[in-house]
């Protein structure tokens, strides 16, 4: 039954989208005219996806997709760092979030020299920040560092 996992996930997603689509507002017939209601096109797409999921399942049944190798701690750790980046950015500061994630990612991926990882984690966001702020005139979201910098 392993061959059903991926097509099953895709089919479940498609059904969820169809359920969400049928709840979309209807447009007055005067505006829609001869074309389709806004909900029809996404439903049509997801029906195609369901057919494709069935085809994929039959393909996988004939030729097993093969066991996908489980990634090492670096990959899953990096995804966890993406998640950690969210609260740091929202509640502390985006630049600090980037520095923390960069530092942790360096160490997680095998960098043994803490000083090198620290320098990289500090120098990169600071230099990119100044480039975007001074040259490209991009304002970054308010936080601990940006509050101090912007005043």
């Amino acid at each position: 039954m392993r061959f059903l996992i991926i097509p099953g996930v895709i089919a479940a997603f498609s059904i969820a989208v169809i359920c969400a689509a049928v709840q979309l507002d209807l447009s007055p017939p005067m505006i829609v005219g001869d074309s389709l209601q806004p909900r029809v096109f996404p439903i049509l797409l997801m029906v195609i996806n369901l057919i494709l999921a069935a085809l994929l399942a039959s393909q996988y049944r004939k030729e097993s997709p093969g066991k996908v190798q489980w990634e090492g701690p670096q990959t899953w750790g990096s995804i966890v760092l993406f998640v950690i980046f969210f609260p740091i950015t929202v509640y502390v500061d985006m630049m600090i979030g980037i520095a923390v994630v960069m530092f942790a990612m360096c160490l997680l991926w095998g960098e043994r020299r803490i000083l090198v990882a620290g320098t990289l984690a500090l120098a990169t966001p600071v230099s990119i920040f100044f480039l975007f702020d001074l040259v490209l005139r991009v304002r970054f979201p308010r936080g601990l560092f940006t509050n101090w910098y912007y005043g």
């Binding site: 980046f85 994630v101 960069m102 990612m105 360096c106 990289l120 990169t124």
Partner: peptide
């Protein structure tokens, strides 16, 4: 381990 954290910062 040095290249991809920089890519992360650039991407974000």
């Amino acid at each position: 381990q040095m290249l991809w954290p920089i890519v992360f910062a650039l991407a974000v």
